[in-house]
Amino acid sequence: MESLAYYDGKIGTPEEMTVPFNDRVHFFGDGCYEATVGANGKVYLLQDHLDRFYTSARLLDIHIPMPKEELGNLLTDLLSKVDSKINFVYWQVTRGVEMRDHVYEDNLPGKLWVLIRPKKLNDPDVAIHLNDEEDTRFYHCNIKTLNLLPSVMTAKRAKRAGFQETVFHRGDIVTECAHANVSVLKDGIFYSHPNDEYILRGIAKTHMIQACYRLGVPVLEKAFTMDFLKNADEVIVTSSSNFCLHASELNGQPVGGKDPATLKAIQNEVLKEFYDYTGCTSLWD
């Protein structure tokens, strides 16, 4: 099977899968999700993603229909049923199925969805181009909800303008990207926005920080400004399916490119963890 879909115990292709009309996701985006990469039959950083998934569900009072260990085993089993060596592994839980009403029933059984499809990872040696926008999203960015319309619209505007990602800021303070985290290197120090309600705590970012510690690169998790980003030595964009990309432009103006040695060392350390974890030998296995 090339791509696989799962809904509430049923397995098939994405085209075969059907979802009840009254699943609350249709009316409210009422759920939370996780996404990572699967390679060589292993779901990358599975425990980290499960921990965040169950935390998001708890904060939203959504009941995941199985324990954490059982879900991990299910994801691993589903991954084994697809043909590609490297895959995008996505799962979500919606609050459940009931007639549309803003006020939901207590203890409604959640509905679990899984999607697994082939994924080509981007080459971290190829620079990407950025733009920026005022961050006008809601104030619960730390919860990985299904309400992604602001990010969807932002991503579309960026693509139309020829950019691969958008840097959000609140006033002059950089928060994150439309669907990634953004960090910078400056004078040999790695800077990243602290984990608060304005950003999603990126697992890829967390592991990149751990890579910095192993390399002896100092880390400061503190807010920084757009000017600080523009004048940084390197601008690094991370997500669960693009571990350590770097930017060369922001709004058509050059950024980064001043500390390639430290950047490459961090990229290599991040990729080594991926290779060691999955047994893959390259991003294109």
Rank of each mutant, 00 (worst) to 15 (best):
L108M: 00
V82S: 13
H102K: 03
N122E: 14
K111A: 05
Y90F: 15
V82T: 15
N122G: 10
H102E: 12
D101W: 01
I128G: 02
K120I: 00
T94Q: 07
W91P: 10
V126S: 12
L74C: 01
G96W: 05
V103G: 09
Q92A: 15
L71G: 04
Q92G: 15
D77P: 02
K119S: 05
F88P: 00
L112P: 07
V82K: 09
D123Q: 02
Y90Q: 14
L75I: 00
D77W: 00
V114I: 08
V93R: 10
D83P: 01
S80C: 06
D83Y: 04
S80L: 09
A127Y: 06
G110V: 03
I128M: 08
T76C: 03
L71M: 10
R100D: 03
Q92S: 15
K85V: 13
S84T: 14
K85C: 09
L75G: 00
G110W: 08
I116Q: 09
D106F: 02
N122D: 13
P118A: 09
M99A: 14
V89K: 10
I116T: 08
L71A: 07
V103A: 13
P124Y: 03
V114W: 04
L71K: 00
K111H: 12
R100P: 06
S84H: 14
N122K: 12
D106H: 05
M99Q: 14
I128E: 09
L75F: 03
D77L: 01
S80P: 09
D77T: 07
Y90A: 04
A127K: 10
F88K: 13
V97K: 08
L78G: 04
R117N: 10
N73C: 02
G96V: 11
R117E: 15
V89G: 12
H102A: 09
V114S: 06
D125L: 05
P118C: 08
G72E: 03
V89C: 14
K120L: 11
L78T: 04
V114Q: 12
R100G: 08
E98G: 07
L74G: 00
V114T: 05
S84Y: 08
D77R: 04
D83S: 15
L115V: 00
K81A: 12
L78A: 02
V89T: 12
L74Q: 03
Y90M: 08
T76S: 10
V93Y: 11
D125C: 01
D83C: 05
